[in-house]
Design a binder for these strands. Sequence first.
DNA 1: ATCCGATATGTTTTATTTTGAATAACGCTT
DNA 2: AAGCGTTATTCAAAATAAAACATATCGGAT
Lengths: 108, 108
Amino acid sequence: MNAKGNIWLENKKGMLIGPGRMYLLELIEQTGSIKSAAAALKMSYRQAWAMVSDMNKNAAKPIIQKTKGGVQGGGTALTPEGKQLIKTYKKVLTKMDSFVLKINATLK
Amino acid sequence: MNAKGNIWLENKKGMLIGPGRMYLLELIEQTGSIKSAAAALKMSYRQAWAMVSDMNKNAAKPIIQKTKGGVQGGGTALTPEGKQLIKTYKKVLTKMDSFVLKINATLK
DNA sequence: ATCCGATATGTTTTATTTTGAATAACGCTT
DNA sequence: AAGCGTTATTCAAAATAAAACATATCGGAT
């Protein structure tokens, strides 16, 4: 018998980030677009776009800056707040992992 | 911004208990039947029955003892293993709660 | 043997989510 | 003005999940 857990960040407006959104943000940062990040995660563009849109709607300051048109058609990049959010959340995830390990030690 | 979390117990066969199943087990213990527990939780009997059935299927030893027929038509009761499982899980939940509180303190 | 009330399960219907296709909007480049 | 590639949004279709309904089963009591 072992424990598994999940943890995420919210504010009054709604959910900010969880494991799935973190993966998506990281890929957006790497690839520069929602489209290619979605493809890399094998999820639909629509779903990825909805996630990003929801995060931006909920966050006090935008997490992601999206640009439309232009030479490459547009793209998206993380704002400083977005990068900070990932950083913060990763720390939380790390602590969560060791917490779950600790719990499992007691369940032996 | 604040953290929220979830935690549950599994084994190789599958999930054993999480928040929802705990509520259900507690009500089964109080009421003596899946039917009335389901009614109290406003969930369908079918769903409650499936939960209990899955728990029993996954657990090494049965969590719940169900009896069919008889003077009251039957009923269900927690086995000692079931009572122990609730106890164990509640401790885990308590620790989880204080862990999330600690995380939130760092997010201030 | 029949009734009762709960467990047990199948079938059907309804509701909700997810997906896919299609299209518009945008702005830089040529 | 036309082309490009991405963001942005709508709409119908498909897939999943949930609910509702209907029976069957069981065993003690009468």
